[in-house]
Nucleic acid binder design. Structure first.
Lengths: 131, 131
DNA sequence: TCGCACACGTTATAGCATAACGCAATTGAT
DNA sequence: ATCAATTGCGTTATGCTATAACGTGTGCGA
């Protein structure tokens, strides 16, 4: 899917995530954007929904939080499964992709005739610095 | 970890999950157990915390819900990563384990010197019947 | 110009999870 | 036996996450 021009709200949410060191919850984003006119959670959630749809943002299910995608171009072609390591110490999130895992999961789901729509892989632990 | 004798509350929560067709949210469990004396969310969450610790229950991060483990004995030795397929149609959840994925993830995290504590793999989609 | 799609704004509400307090039962070392 | 520590329990209150429902405005093609 081609990424359309972002609206004003979408741009502000995207910028907040891009400039953040780590993942942000929707309400944290809201707080960051209050100065710029945001008043209600839905303004954030609606923007996030679109950014997720465009593949510019990922949702971290185990944190109820969101991060900017580190390689949005690759997603224009919607390649593959995205996985994350999440450090419990410093909060750092690293996105990665692995074709072997993707193929293995694909084989396993095909074996049970399961039609995959979205795959979540999140690894919680401690990064090198925080070990 | 050896599983200790469950307390009364833990047993009731475990039974609710075991007898359920699919995953249950904490508040759904609470509602099911009101007749048996449950009054507050914490009663459920505290029981769930222990059941998770004992490996008798899994948390589905993408649903904010819980399921009984389908193979609790294997977990007594704390083998491996648990993965799930989750059908958006009928709600059916299938737990599975795959050593190849586990090894691949292990290699990838070791490469970034990341110390894994918990791995979440959840595949949303449609099962054979609901495709 | 009419109708439609879409983004937006607001209020209210629903759903998920934990903080903080105190009490009761158990255990186990002295 | 007794005291201290641990663990589970019950309750109230609160906080965080997410969506429902309604209406407004704008752009654009039939």
């Amino acid at each position: 899917m081609a990424t359309p021009q972002l609206t004003k709200n979408q741009t502000m949410v995207m910028d907040a995530l891009s400039h953040s060191e780590g993942p942000l919850s929707a309400y944290t984003i809201l707080d960051k954007l209050r100065d710029q006119g945001f008043r209600a959670p839905l303004q954030v959630y609606r923007a996030l929904d679109k950014l997720l749809e465009y593949g510019l943002v990922h949702r971290l299910e185990s944190l109820n939080a969101f991060v900017a995608c580190t390689c949005p171009h690759e997603h224009e072609h919607d390649h593959g499964v995205t996985a994350f390591t999440i450090c419990e110490g410093c909060g750092q999130v690293t996105e990665f992709h692995d074709i072997a895992i993707e193929q293995r999961l694909s084989a396993l789901t095909r074996a049970q005739n399961f039609k995959t729509e979205k795959t979540t892989i999140e690894i919680r632990g401690h990064c090198q610095s925080c070990a």
